[in-house]
Design a protein around this nucleic acid. Structure first.
Length: 419
RNA sequence: GUGGGUGUAGCUCAGCUUGGUUAGAGCACCUGGUUGUGGCCCAGGAGGCCGCCGGUUCAAGUCCGGUCAUCCACCCCA
């Protein structure tokens, strides 16, 4: 039998994992800086939380979910995104009653049955944050600031672009939608086939069509921003004011409409021109009606998610140097007796907090040093018959190619010898 | 779901146009050049169902058909 990972799923190998750790750690730190706490939620949920939460006309729900029957016949789905599950948990645990505001972040694998491509996998990792309980524009701005600060902390802010928009309330959008149809209907012959279809199903999505012939028609189309209610307009103005005040560069793009139905008012996207066509590396927005829609108390919320594979890809391009595991000591022993001593010494050093590779195979001294070199060990400890007889070990500084001898008794305070 | 590119050593790739001895290179790996000293250099070694199935042919890595995988783009999205 031929073994092979499932299409669209991949391994993250040891040589790449250090960069993952580095980036995940940075993200965690920033989430916590903004007062968010981690939540871990299941990978499987009942299908309805997605169908009724994300909107059943969205591509994700209509053709990309991994949905199957549980043994008792209920329909369950591998999570295609994080927000719906966090909302479910928020409701189920009555978080709104325990605290007026709840700030949660999560990290984990999401599943969408898409055609794999660069930066797009069927199993992919997201880190995201959700803030429940505030409808204030200050909250939106704080969240956007958090997203931005992840990228500036990683020194990637020069390679991404923040775009924001407001899509108003559902009434605003209904009005806008009507106007859009009125606008496009008479000139639908100028639109591509996809857009003609969208005219019936989801006219807002025509706005982000990239087909050239559509672009001129779209250019003169009405803007959502002219349809916002007073409250939504003020909310949006306030966010823009705050982002300027804290020096976060952004542009307003009235054509941003999110793919999921739960968004209200604020939406935003972080894109890069370095990843080909999968250019969205983070995105989010406000979703004031979702909690209620899923059966919870009327609770406003804002959140975003970052695509980790894409973030890593971007980081690799900007900082191509390798991220390596750090090995402090390689213990090279020569001969049976020395091997016995080697495992003992290695463990003492590990207790002192060092990363130690113990050469446990009977290999030539030369190949052991080669190994030490290859794994980039800072020091090699050398013990052979000769050293054992004299109750000493040699310590070789790999970078300087210098060796010193120490009494074996000094192993107990080894950390002092090299610091 | 649609279109295009690519499948040869662990990795990156040459060879295919114009079929013909034993399928190559670089990197990585192993051994030696040094009785117990890494990186550089030198010598040697190991490693291939040439993606898979079928066809054409005296003969297929090379030509043809199919299939699968993969990458990129459309689309969608993080």
């Amino acid at each position: 039998m031929k073994v092979k990972s499932i299409r669209g799923f991949r391994d993250i190998l040891p040589e790449e994992i250090k960069r993952w750790h580095f980036i995940e750690e940075k993200c965690r730190k920033i989430f916590e800086k903004y007062g968010f706490s981690e939540i871990r939620i299941p990978i499987l949920e009942q299908t309805d939380i997605y169908t009724s939460g994300l909107g059943d006309t969205s591509d994700i729900v209509s053709k990309e979910m991994y949905t199957f029957e549980d043994r008792d016949g209920t329909s369950i789905t591998l999570r295609p995104e994080g927000t719906a599950g966090v909302v479910r948990s928020f409701i189920e645990n009555s978080m709104g009653k325990k605290s007026p505001v709840n700030k949660l972040y999560y990290s984990g694998m999401m599943f969408r049955h898409e055609r794999p491509q660069k930066g797009r996998y069927r199993g992919f990792n997201q880190m995201g944050a959700e803030c429940f309980g505030s409808e204030s524009a200050y909250c939106d701005a704080d969240i956007i600031s958090m997203l931005w600060s992840i990228f500036s902390e990683l020194e990637l802010n020069n390679h991404v672009k923040l775009e924001i928009n407001s899509i108003g309330t559902s009434e605003d959008r209904a009005k806008f939608r009507e106007e859009l149809v009125n606008y496009f209907e008479p000139q639908k012959d100028n639109l591509c086939d996809d857009c003609k279809r969208k005219l019936d199903t989801n006219p807002l999505r025509i706005l982000d069509c990239k087909v050239e012939t559509c672009l001129t028609t779209i250019g003169k189309a009405p803007s959502i921003l002219d349809f916002l209610s007073i409250d939504s307009k003020n909310h949006f103005e306030k966010i823009k004011f705050l982002l300027e005040k804290i020096d976060i560069p952004f542009t307003v793009n009235p054509k941003i409409v999110r793919g999921l139905d739960y968004y209200t008012d604020t939406v935003f996207e972080l894109t890069t021109d370095k990843l080909g066509s999968q250019n969205a590396v983070g995105a989010g927005g406000r979703y004031d009606v979702l909690v209620k829609q899923l059966g919870g108390p009327d609770t406003p919320a804002v959140g975003f998610a970052i695509g980790l594979e894409r973030l890593i890809l971007l980081h690799e391009q900007v900082f191509p140097e390798e991220y390596r595991q750090n090995v402090d000591i390689y213990v090279a022993s020569l001969g049976e007796k020395a091997l016995n001593e080697g495992i003992y010494i290695s463990n003492i050093l590990r207790k002192q907090g060092l990363n130690v590779e113990y050469g446990f195979d009977k290999k030539s001294f030369k190949s052991q040093l080669k190994r030490a070199n290859k794994i980039n060990a800072k020091y090699t400890i050398i013990i052979g018959e000769d050293e054992l007889d004299r109750n000493v070990f040699k310590l070789r500084n790999m970078k300087l190619s210098e060796e010193k001898e120490y009494s074996l008794d000094e192993i107990e305070n080894f950390i002092n010898l090299i610091s």
